[in-house]
């Protein structure tokens, strides 16, 4: 047996960072493995092709959906619902959360209300939302809004409370009044955390979108998938899933890019 050399490189090293090259190769490998197993299972006849179409067929179907069947319209409607509902939720949550995190008097009013609503699953409102708003856009937007708003308020409030006391006291001893303290110190201090919280909650909005469109919609990606189910088109269902995944990823990357662009000072740590 050879004596262990101290420079011998092993695959598993405790907490040793991997190179960019190794990281990229590992990422590609796991996806190749996934599609490989799928391809072999489907093409080799190991699974019912009606239930599990091959990845090749799914990509062909996705292409056809875009080119011939106006899938882009369904995607547009879904994206529009997410963006609009999320914008409304943010417009309420950010100012309210910052105020609650800054002024205990405001927290004392709203916190008991907001935390109770957080424990009610938003989908439990679907029947009543349908009765109130009918079948138009309103019940979908309302579900997305309800699903996100109470969590976002709580996150923004918690991050605002974490703004260090010394920053606020510094502002006060420099002669700042309440308004200046909130707008020029608390808000810019917490803004990077707010954008991160929004990024997380946008992913949750996508979840509620699919629920809304599957349950009660004739348009959008979720509705397309439910139509496909009626005609046993598993390839189209899988296309829908892939498109939703890609859209979620794209929005996440956009938020990350916005974060870097808005807060350049956070990237310059030395």
């Amino acid at each position: 047996m050879r004596s262990p050399s101290p420079h011998k490189s092993r695959f598993l090293e405790v907490r040793r960072p991997v190179s960019r090259r190794q990281a990229a190769l590992s990422a590609i490998a796991i996806w190749v493995l996934f599609f490989g197993i799928w391809l072999i299972a489907a093409e080799g006849g190991m699974v019912n092709p009606l239930l599990v179409p091959s990845p090749v067929q799914v990509f062909e179907t996705t292409w056809n959906l875009f080119v011939d069947r106006g899938f882009i319209g369904d995607i547009g409607i879904s994206v529009w619902r997410v963006v609009l509902a999320f914008a409304m939720a943010s417009a309420l949550s950010v100012p309210l959360g910052v105020m609650m995190g800054t002024f205990p008097a405001i927290e004392a009013i709203f916190a008991p209300f907001v935390s109770a609503w957080r424990y009610l699953p938003a989908p439990s409102f679907i029947p009543i939302l349908l009765m109130w708003f009918g079948t138009g856009e309103a019940p979908k937007l309302a579900l997305l809004f309800l699903g996100v708003v109470f969590f976002l308020i709580t996150l923004v409030m918690d991050h605002t409370k974490n703004v260090r006391k010394e920053l606020i006291e510094t502002a006060l001893t420099l002669g700042a009044n309440r308004k200046v303290t909130v707008l020029n110190v608390v808000l810019p201090a917490v803004l990077p955390e707010i954008v991160t919280a929004m990024r997380q909650m946008l992913a949750v909005t996508w979840t509620y979108l699919v629920i809304a469109e599957i349950v009660a919609s004739t348009t959008g990606i979720g509705a397309m998938m439910m139509r496909a189910r009626r005609f046993l088109k598993t390839d189209e269902i899988l296309s829908g899933i892939i498109v939703i995944g890609v859209l979620g990823l794209v929005f996440d990357l956009l938020f990350k890019a916005a974060h870097r662009w808005l807060f350049p000072y956070l990237q310059e740590k030395r």
Partner: peptide, 13 residues
């Protein structure tokens, strides 16, 4: 009466 604290209070932005 301006105050300087032990903790860093620079406005990072």
């Amino acid at each position: 009466r301006g105050m300087v604290f032990q903790a860093y209070t620079s406005f990072d932005w």
